[in-house]
């Protein structure tokens, strides 16, 4: 009885969370320029797959494949950069002792508060004075380190038993060796988690790429397809939804592969 109730609740919740996506897909298959369908006409008799062709290949001013490539370049650079820079710092905070360590770590944590609207403007001006606006540098460099992943990795590194590096130290290993040969290999799951977080946060970042790029060749998928609206007149819902599905597909594929680390990972992030 309890089991049945649980399943009922789970299914209802699942529907509630997934129905909008199904709906999105169905609307994207309505004929181009069709008005918004009512529920009973939601399943199209002749799915208009041509909408996908139209959005992907028939938009001379909207290089969707280029947007995709930009997203890939930017996201992977940031993920790699963050893994390296943040893991180094996390090692420092978790396994080494130096003056002011806790204060500096506290500043890292505190900096989580001044993101978003607070620093966007000065970061924009900084990037401008470096001459980076509308280049990959503008999209990548501000993201290659994050206090959040430093925090996440520090938690994981702290959990590795101390005996291991003591043994290594006896063999004459230095800190960098311990970091690269012991801690990093042992923290695969945490690194994967941190990478997964970073991947989704970067891929779906909207505000910064919107601000820091101006030419369509430099736009990421998220920003590029957000402008999928005709400047005049009403929204063309089927094509709009087609663009939305196209944004979602890489995310869902990535999620499918990383989901294990992902759901595990937030646990590492939480304070035990």
């Amino acid at each position: 009885m309890k089991k049945a109730l649980s399943y009922a609740a789970l299914t209802a919740l699942g529907l509630f969370l997934v129905a909008p996506f199904v709906w999105m897909l169905l609307v994207s298959l309505q004929p181009n320029k069709a008005p918004i369908p009512t529920l009973d006409h939601l399943v199209p008799k002749h799915p208009a797959w041509s909408n996908y062709h139209l959005v992907l290949f028939e938009q001379p001013n909207l290089p969707v494949l280029r947007f995709f490539l930009n997203s890939v370049i930017v996201t992977f650079s940031i993920v790699l950069g963050q893994l390296f820079v943040s893991s180094l710092a996390a090692y420092g905070f978790a396994r080494m002792n130096f003056k002011g360590r806790n204060y500096i770590f506290f500043i890292f944590l505190g900096s989580l508060m001044f993101s978003g609207p607070v620093t966007q403007l000065p970061v924009y001006l900084l990037v401008r004075s470096l001459g980076w606006l509308d280049t990959y540098a503008a999209l990548i460099v501000p993201g290659v380190s994050s206090a959040f992943s430093v925090f996440l990795l520090r938690q994981a590194f702290s959990a590795v038993p101390n005996e291991l590096d003591e043994a290594a130290r006896m063999d004459g290993a230095g800190d960098f060796r311990i970091y690269s040969r012991i801690i990093m290999p042992l923290s695969g799951a945490a690194l994967a988690t941190s990478a997964a977080f970073c991947f989704f946060a970067t891929w779906t970042d909207f505000f910064w790429p919107l601000l820091s790029t101006s030419s369509s060749n430099m736009r990421t998928l998220e920003v590029g397809l957000s402008v999928f609206k005709n400047s005049y007149g009403n929204t063309n819902w089927p094509l709009e939804m087609t663009a939305t599905v196209l944004v979602m597909i890489p995310l869902l594929v990535a999620f499918l592969f990383s989901q294990r680390y992902f759901t595990k990972g937030i646990m590492i992030g939480s304070i035990k």
Partner: peptide, 16 residues
Amino acid sequence: TTAVVIGLCLCVSGCK
């Protein structure tokens, strides 16, 4: 990995 990161940074800052 380090080399890749540095390489990317160098490439990224210049070319459009």
